[in-house]
Design a protein around this nucleic acid. Structure first.
Lengths: 176, 176
DNA sequence: AGTTAAGATGAGTGCTGACTCACTTTCGGG
DNA sequence: CCCGAAAGTGAGTCAGCACTCATCTTAACT
């Protein structure tokens, strides 16, 4: 791949991530091109459809999360699941991308699946350390994660409200 | 108002509610007209902008919820808040309208405020009856309600997953 | 029944946004 | 330095959608 092509591909991806974080997946491809400093045709050369572009940035993001959660999982701290959970929700409040990633109808090439599995490890560690009650399954944790992330963004939660809401969810997850 | 005009207005509202429940606020006005059995111009005669149409159905829905929650509040049952919460989430899972109503940037003429206040009464009743822990505020309850409603719809939760997820949230709300 | 204003109609307008392609520019191997 | 292929460009196409308006229809009052 030619050097300019490589440079432009990276620029476009970075611009797209910014734009989607700010304006959501509804943002126009023109806006991405403008922000990347290239013509619209160039964007479509690298990503033939808008969906391809979205999938690419989702993949990046999912990979980043998967790495973070895997490194936490390796350390075996039973509190780690709460740290990670709070972290994702905090990011979601600022970046639409996070929320719209978690929606995923689109296939993200297994990265999301990896992330899910790593969160599973976090959950097992927590239940072994008695920081999450025994009956709780991975499904519910994922459901609560997407639920609070969505709402944090769309409801425009303040830092304080976010803290108090998560406190209730966490209380529901902890053993009596 | 002429009889045919009244009839068409009602038809349009009903059709719009159906369409939005199925396809969300992004549904086209043409689709509403088709389903109502009128021409597109007629829709715009009754509701000059798409926003007016959306506001009208949101108002209806908010009013329906507000009435339900007020009647529950009057009975004073300290468990009522859980019943209502579960009911809203169950409806949200099937109807986009509910979710998109809860988003509300649009003003719904105070109906939403009424609903919020009635839920406040439900919360007070519950705390008085010791079925919700003392520190919990109305803000968090509303936040959790929108969060779980959103996620139930967009995540396509099964009945079972919904039950288990709500069980965790409710466990977080109940006193130790 | 006749009249008329309210109401219905649907082709048309303007705009936005995804995607294309004929043409120009640039990279990099020989 | 030259040249062919790869990449970039942006005006243009097409489709969808909110909204308009000149024209036709009909409810309802006298």
């Amino acid at each position: 791949m030619r050097a300019d092509a490589q440079r432009n591909r990276a620029r476009i991806l970075a611009a797209a991530e910014e734009v989607v974080a700010e304006m959501g997946v509804g943002a126009s491809t023109e806006e991405v091109a403008r922000r990347a400093g290239v013509a619209i045709g160039t964007v479509f050369r690298h990503f033939p459809t808008k969906d391809d572009l979205l999938t690419a940035i989702m993949k990046q993001l999912a990979l980043r999360f998967a790495e973070e959660v895997e490194s936490l999982a390796r350390q075996g701290d039973p509190e780690a699941i709460y740290t990670f959970f709070a972290n994702v929700v905090a990011q979601a409040a600022a970046k639409r991308t996070v929320v719209e990633l978690l929606d995923v109808d689109i296939q993200v090439g297994g990265q999301l699946q990896l992330m899910r599995e790593a969160i599973g490890t976090l959950l097992v560690n927590a239940q072994r350390g008695n920081t999450v009650r025994p009956g709780v399954q991975l499904d519910e944790v994922m459901a609560l994660l997407t639920a609070t992330s969505h709402a944090a963004l769309r409801g425009g939660w303040s830092d304080d409200l976010r803290r108090r809401t998560l406190a209730i969810v966490f209380a529901g997850l902890r053993p009596d």
